[in-house]
Amino acid sequence: MSLKSNLTFGRGLKDGVPIALGYLSVSFAFGMSAASKGFPFWSPCLISLTNFTGTGQFVGVDLIAAKAGLFELAFTLLIINLRYLLMSLSLSQRLAPNVGLGKRLLIAFGNTDEIFAVAMQQEGLLPFRYMGGLIISSFSGWVFGTAIGAGASNLMPAAICSALGIAVYAMFIAIIVPPARKHQPVLRIVLIAITLSSVFFFVPPFHSLSSGWSIIICGAIASAYGAYFYPLRDDDNLSGESEEGGEQNDN
């Protein structure tokens, strides 16, 4: 079977650029926070090179600095990372059939929230070369930002650091709004997930739930609702691209 899609390696590299830019700020903050907690320069760099995850790294460094045991470290991070089970399962359904086990092992390392989200936006099956490009440019931004943050922690003005905190969330917004605008079921799923997640965050009895659990529970309930009431056919796709003709025909 030939896979003549436009999802080339170069396209992957290019699609990874906004992720890398978003990562620069987050990983910069990570490197900075590790350095300020007394970690030697190489340590946050090695963590970014081997982990490649946002929340988990921040929490991990906090726990290590607080002299937590290895079991506590492993257990807490495992809970935070549980969402990757669902994401990887979802991604496994979109990889081209010729992506073998070895390549899957590599792709798995790069299945971050952002890479996953951008990959799932594409139409059709995902070839290895596209995933490779996407992961390489994103990963470079992640490691590079960490090194700068850990090395020169006070170069960036505080105001810019604060503002950059929103960059990754803004990117997520850019990912979910177009399909939510176009597909009623996606809009409902998004609204349900937001409502649940706000309840979990603000209502006291749920507040003790860690954010890792909260995300996976809210996301799963909302998607199960969508799958039950609006099952998709095989050829349905959820991209947010406007129909041919663009904006005018769309409303």
Binding site: M87, Q93, F116, M120, I189, C218, S223
Partner: peptide
Amino acid sequence: FLLYMPYGILAA
């Protein structure tokens, strides 16, 4: 469920 999941998770 798996196709809807990214949107639910990202929104949360």
